[in-house]
């Protein structure tokens, strides 16, 4: 057995091979790049705040209720995703898959409310083309939403692989990495909730 495939049984399943350890570290570094990416979108959004042209402003359109629903759904999905990994570490493939499916359903629910919110804004005359502010709003939120959609698609792939190949060091690593991604989307949302919605309603 060569060095690259040496199994270290003292580690959790997803850390057992060298390849897994490399991939997980690489993914953390990728998340660092994602922070720079969302940082730039936030910078753009804050600078363009208040540049409404003739369009409506955020305080006229933002509604706490819908936003809180989206926030709680996403927070809960982050929790269920964490439980999924907890189940994985107990060696339960079934538990992992059930909690992942729950996470995905919550993700879909989040997308449903977000898209409904966007449609509402567009009806009220606020779209990507309305003003600099709304361009920045839709791009920041849209990028996050696109990440969530991608995450759902990606999780589906991993669920198929879990069903087909069972829980082994490869599928465990993949499940762990998608969980990092999913939690990270929640981190981004926390800042969107605070920086976009709460500040938008206050100012």
């Amino acid at each position: 057995m060569s060095h690259d495939e040496a199994i270290d049984p003292n580690q959790p399943l997803e850390f057992q091979t060298e390849k897994s350890r490399l991939n997980i570290l690489g993914f953390w570094i990728f998340l660092g790049a994602e922070i720079a990416l969302f940082g730039t979108l936030f910078a753009t959004y804050f600078v363009l705040t208040g540049r409404l042209a003739d369009g409506p402003g955020p305080s006229e359109l933002f509604e706490l209720r819908g936003v809180l629903i989206e926030t709680f759904i996403l927070l809960t999905s982050s929790f269920t995703c964490g439980i999924a990994i907890h189940e994985m570490r107990r060696g339960s493939r079934k538990g992992l898959m059930i909690w992942f499916i729950l996470t995905m359903l919550l993700g879909l629910g989040f997308l449903y409310f977000e898209i409904e919110e966007f449609i509402h804004y567009i009806h009220e005359g606020a779209s990507l083309q309305t003003s600099a502010f709304w361009s920045a709003f839709f791009t920041l939120l849209g990028t996050h939403g696109a990440h969530v959609s991608l995450g759902i698609g990606w999780m589906t792939m991993i669920l198929i692989q879990l069903a087909r190949n069972g829980l082994n060091s490869t599928t465990a690593r993949k499940a762990f990495i998608i969980s990092l991604y999913w939690h990270f989307l929640d981190v981004v949302w926390i800042f969107i909730f605070t920086g976009v919605y709460l500040l938008g309603m206050v100012m």
């Binding site: 570094i29 660092g32 922070i35 910078a43």
Partner: peptide, 18 residues
């Protein structure tokens, strides 16, 4: 370290730009 460094860069980008 990665997360701390990215947070610093994020703050530089956001606060610096503003």
């Amino acid at each position: 370290f990665t997360m701390v460094y990215s947070a610093i860069i994020g703050v530089i980008i956001v606060a610096g730009t503003i």
